[in-house]
């Protein structure tokens, strides 16, 4: 059996006794080196999951295991060594006055010796192609560059999982693609688990697995291909399907044979090609 890396066992959470449950009896596992996308309408509990994973919040019921440790007040510092988080707005995450200082901050906090620190700063900034910006002020970089520095700061502490909480939402389409290709390259090379919380439908198609949240509960766990076959149900819970799935549905309605729910333009074109050659 595969060893799980993150485990949610019957987790329920609310912000106070007067408040409604944000998560209700949520259970799932995430395996090492897997890319899981978490999607759901605004207020479905996605971001709460991220905050529970690294102990920014604690559940009232159930337990969360990260890398073999039960997340609690006593283990959070150990847990946070293996969990790297990148949030939506990079400006809220900068502490250093230069790019180099900013990456160094997390390492200093963990007492990493200076020679090792220099090595890690260099390699993590190189991984995100920002090694030419060592002495730049983080606040003066473009949105995409800022997010790449935030990712480098995370990489420097060698986490085993990176969580992106709507980390590309504020970027333009080009910036978004750049960040995602940086992240997947890094994930591949360092054998990391990747958890992305996102509304971007095209980003979801590239994940290994999708957890769909609705009203604080796990609504579905499936591959992107399976998820996007459920067009009507997704729309009912405030979500949608990508352009390619929509066009494929329209073609199916017209009697064009499309067998495998396509996830990219190329896959749909291939299906059309097969259909074309059969005639």
């Amino acid at each position: 059996m595969r060893q799980s890396f993150i485990e949610f066992n019957n987790v329920s959470f609310r912000y106070g006794e007067e408040h409604p449950w944000v998560l209700k009896n949520v259970s799932f596992v995430i395996y090492p080196d897997e890319w899981v996308a978490i999607i759901g309408h605004n207020g479905s509990g996605k971001s709460t999951i991220a905050k529970l994973i690294n102990g920014l919040l604690f559940p009232q019921e159930g337990e969360i295991i990260v890398d073999g440790l039960k997340v609690s007040q006593d283990t959070i510092w150990e847990v946070r060594k293996s969990v790297g988080m990148v949030f939506q707005n990079p400006d809220n995450q900068f502490v250093g006055t230069t790019v180099r200082d900013d990456v160094a901050f997390g390492l200093e906090n963990r007492g990493v010796p200076r020679p090792e620190m220099i090595k890690r700063i260099d390699s993590s900034l190189t991984a995100v192609s920002m090694n030419d910006y060592l002495l730049h002020e983080p606040h003066r970089l473009s949105g995409g560059q800022k997010q790449r520095v935030a990712i480098a700061s995370i990489l420097a502490i060698s986490p085993k999982v990176i969580i992106l909480d709507e980390a590309t939402a504020m970027l333009d389409p080009t910036g978004r693609l750049e960040i995602m290709s940086t992240i997947t390259e890094v994930q591949d090379k360092h054998n990391l688990a990747l958890v992305t919380i996102t509304h971007d439908l095209n980003e979801i198609t590239k994940a290994d697995r999708v957890i769909v949240m609705n009203d604080g509960k796990v609504w579905l766990e499936a591959t992107p291909r399976e998820v996007f076959t459920k067009k009507e149900e997704l729309q009912l819970i405030g979500l949608d399907t990508p352009f390619v799935s929509k066009l494929a549905d329209q073609l199916t309605n017209l009697g064009v044979e499309i067998n495998n729910q396509p996830l990219s333009h190329e896959e749909l074109l291939e299906e059309l090609w097969i259909s074309h050659s059969k005639m």
Partner: peptide, 17 residues
Amino acid sequence: ELSELAQELKELIRGAD
């Protein structure tokens, strides 16, 4: 609309054939 586009796509694929 997407439905119209699908229709045109279907006709082109069959027509070309």
